[in-house]
């Protein structure tokens, strides 16, 4: 009989006993190869489940590279710490706040928001990422990669915009550029119809590469999930928000650059991002 599908073996190792049908189960019981494969993966899963905050990757101090560089007499052009850039990015990604950048709210009427004001306690406003971040370090690393500089965006834009919501607009987002997209910017507006249907209107100003396309996402405030709203063609688009989607949790509007590779997942190449408030 044929071996059990490797996808199924992986699910079994994760403890999903229901993943295998009766004939597969029978095969497993008599096939040393398949059962050994599951056992090995189980060991990997056990290590994965035992990860703690202490296993979070740490970074040597800048003095270490200086010492290596000096001790080995390396070329002067290699004097900069190879980790310099990466550690700075990591700090931005998980740091408490960044300096607020010039914000769209500055020119808006109404009281100027204080840059250092604590997050609003209004229940309808999502709290900053940092406060909501689950304990697991895994998510901070996910934030570092998937979100890159959400700390910066959060610091700059977790403030209510000065404009009062009008008509059917229930939330706004100022979309800030990620570092790979200097100069990009955008806006998003969440609109609600009397019948409850919601639409997200997104506008984007950014240079357009020759290939690929733009996709609009709503990402959960703790980065634990994301929903694709669709393809942004041109500089503005309107997207239906799935009924039942809690936009106070899926509160980060994200526009990504996607390659035409058939992979439906987020490319991790975000152009702009900002929270709905």
């Amino acid at each position: 009989m044929a071996h059990v599908d490797p996808d199924i073996l992986a699910l079994l190792a994760l403890g999903e006993q229901d993943a295998v049908d009766p004939s597969g189960r029978e095969h497993l019981a008599s096939c040393p190869e398949c059962s050994a494969a599951v056992d090995e993966l189980r060991r990997t899963v056990a290590v994965g489940r035992s990860l703690t905050d202490d296993d979070q990757p740490s970074v040597p101090s800048p003095a270490v590279w200086r010492a290596v560089h000096a001790e080995l007499g390396l070329a002067p052009e290699l004097a900069a710490d190879p980790l310099g850039e990466r550690s700075a990015t990591a700090e931005l990604a998980v740091g408490p706040t960044a300096e607020p950048t010039a914000d769209a709210s500055v020119d808006a009427p109404g009281p100027a928001p204080a840059p250092t004001a604590p997050p609003s306690t209004d229940a309808s406003v999502v709290v900053p990422l940092r406060a909501r971040r689950p304990r697991s370090w895994a998510w901070t690393a996910a934030a570092a990669c998937l979100a890159l500089v959400i700390g910066v965006g959060a610091g700059a834009t977790w403030m209510r915009r000065g404009t009062a919501p009008t008509g059917s607009t229930v939330a706004n987002a100022t979309l800030d550029a990620l570092p790979a997209w200097p100069g990009a910017s955008g806006e998003a507006r969440l609109e609600k119809e009397p019948d409850g249907t919601r639409r997200l209107v997104v506008s984007l100003a950014a240079g357009v590469p020759d290939d690929g396309f733009r996709e609009v996402w709503l990402i959960r405030d703790d980065l634990s999930g994301l929903v694709s709203l669709g393809v942004l063609d041109g500089t503005e688009g309107t997207f239906d928000v799935p009924a039942g989607l809690d936009t106070t949790r899926y509160s980060l509007v994200d526009v990504s650059q996607e390659p035409l590779d058939g992979n439906p997942a987020h490319s991790s190449d975000s152009i702009v991002r900002g929270p709905l408030v």
Binding site: V45, R49, L51, A138, A142, H266
Partner: peptide, 30 residues
């Protein structure tokens, strides 16, 4: 082993990394 696995998980990239973390840390089924 834990440090190596944490490092490799970081190298995985998304969505693989997020998927495995949901399975590891939160015990979600596929």
């Amino acid at each position: 082993d834990r440090v190596l696995l944490a490092d490799e998980l970081d190298q995985l990239g998304d969505p693989g990394r997020t998927i495995l973390r949901l399975a590891f840390d939160h015990g979600l089924t596929h």
